[in-house]
Nucleic acid binder design. Structure first.
Length: 444
RNA sequence: GGCCCCAUCGUCUAACGGUUAGGACAGCACCCUUUCAAGGUGUAAAUUUGGGUUCGAUUCCCAGUGGGGUCACCA
């Protein structure tokens, strides 16, 4: 009874990849790969009006950044004949009918679908094709996310459109035709699809195809509003997170845990480890809230795990224009532990490239003495390396009875312009004697 | 409103009907430390309510309450 596991990710090319879609793709990928099966990418471009040019390429590109490589690839608009054929077959067999009513749209004021379409018994021979929902049937399936049977009385299911008058199928038809044709074994799709499942159950049945196992992972809720993530209010686009300096491995690790957990409650996963540990029984049934805190932690964690050389490459888009790579290379070890996002580079390292004179109020009361002393020492330090700078500065702090913390804080503020910086002596060595003295001269 | 789904710390979650209800993030405290981090140690923090079933319910059943989704010739 168990054939090959084949899953699919079926986005519609209406824009950039949504973070929730990434999660769905991840689950579909893991389910297939865990079972040595196939993962199919299917572009559902059956609504010409909503299609965005370039979206398909962008989607593929984003998916590949996460290493979610598909084994097969299909585009629905290239398969129109199949849908038409299927719809006509349903009409011929009495499971669907033509309808010539004016196309309706939910956005029209006060509109709500009629359960039983007035055209269903008119025996028309052209127009759109709609599903003839039977009376008195129980439509049920076992949901592998919820781990239980979910059912509807057919009286509550409306005569959904299957083939639009423009000859394109609706999702309801295309999904069944394709899943049968492509031998999909498991459907994993967003929870928002659950209410239309009875329609699909009927279409699958009438088409004579095997009904795949079906699972609806939870919706991801906004941490702010508690509602489903929305493009308007929340940041939802994967590319935006990437641009903001989140690493693909953090995004994946964070998102896979929103709605799924292993028995041992392990939390750190690479894509390969996730695939290896994937268990179809690990889905969570309650809607999780998206909270950026944990994502931030994952991102800091994965940044710290990068080698300095890897970070140099990753940081490129976030460096100042005049940045010299040799200098950045030296800076990286100093700020690595401090980065939450790659884009934080500037907040910690900007002073290396661009000096802003600090607010005088930041200094302690003895700053003048501190800075004069520091100036002399730095000027006379030779060779200008960390070791000699450390020891000479400490000697002078002792000799003058300065408070160590206060001395270095004033030095820090003068040189870096802030109270919060990477280790200051290390920074001074990278900055160089000349530049450091130039900055100190402002205060002595 | 109809239909459907759901309910453990603030958040993500673990717990064959028997645990001092565990972990992680965030919080707090301490340690480390010339700042901020990172790291270490510790701490506070949860089973929605009411009924059953059971020797025993976070766990099973029913109801309430609460939250979410969906009701297009969009996907």
């Amino acid at each position: 009874m168990e054939g090959k596991v084949r899953t699919r990710f079926a986005p519609s090319p209406t824009g950039f990849l949504h973070i929730g879609s990434l999660r769905t793709a991840l689950y579909a990928y893991a389910l297939a790969k865990k079972n040595n099966g196939d993962y199919v990418l299917r572009v559902e471009d059956t609504d010409q009006k909503r299609e965005v040019k370039g979206a398909v390429e962008a989607l593929k590109e984003t998916l590949l950044k996460f290493n979610l490589k598909w084994d097969e690839y299909y585009v629905q608009s290239e398969r129109l004949e199949k849908y038409k054929e299927a719809a006509e077959k349903l009409v011929a067999e009495g499971h669907a009918f033509y309808c010539e009513c004016k196309a309706k749209n939910a956005k029209e004021e006060g509109f709500s679908a009629e359960l039983r379409d007035p055209c269903r018994d008119k025996k028309l021979t052209s127009g759109a094709i709609k599903l003839k929902v039977p009376e008195g049937e129980t439509l049920a399936y076992f949901d592998f996310v919820h781990k239980k049977e979910i059912s509807w009385n057919s009286e509550t299911v409306y005569d959904a459109t299957l083939l639009k008058s423009d000859g394109f199928p609706t999702y309801h038809l295309a999904v069944a035709v394709d899943d049968i044709d492509m031998k999909i074994s498991h459907i994993i799709r967003g929870h928002d699809w659950l209410p239309s499942t009875p329609i699909h159950l009927l279409v699958f049945k009438y088409l004579g195809g095997p009904i795949p196992a079906i699972g609806h992972p939870t919706d991801i809720l906004s941490g702010e509003t508690g509602k489903k993530l929305s493009k308007r209010r929340d940041s939802v686009f994967v590319e935006q997170f990437l641009k903001d300096g989140y690493l693909p491995e953090s995004l994946i690790n964070f998102i896979l845990l929103l709605g799924w957990a292993p028995k041992d409650n392990r939390e750190l996963f690479t894509l390969e480890e996730f695939v290896g540990n994937f268990d179809i029984n690990g889905f969570q049934e309650a809607n999780p809230k998206f909270s950026i805190e944990k994502l931030n932690w994952f991102n800091g964690y994965y940044i710290r795990k990068k080698s300095d050389d890897e970070l140099l490459v990753l940081l490129k888009p976030y460096l100042p224009e005049n940045a010299d790579f040799e200098k950045v290379k030296q800076i990286i070890p100093l700020i690595k532990d401090r980065l939450i996002k790659l884009s934080d580079f500037s907040t910690f390292a900007e002073f290396f490239f661009d000096y802003k004179k600090p607010d005088m109020k930041l200094f302690g009361e003895n700053y003048k003495k501190h800075l004069e002393t520091a100036f002399k020492i730095i000027e006379s330090t030779e060779p200008f390396d960390l070791e000699s700078l450390n020891s000479k500065l400490m000697v002078v702090v002792k000799d003058n009875n300065f408070k160590t913390g206060e001395f270095f804080m004033d030095l820090r503020i003068a040189v870096a312009g802030s109270k919060f910086t990477p280790p200051i002596n290390e920074s001074i060595v990278i900055l160089g004697k000349e530049e450091t003295l130039k900055r100190l001269r402002e205060f002595v």
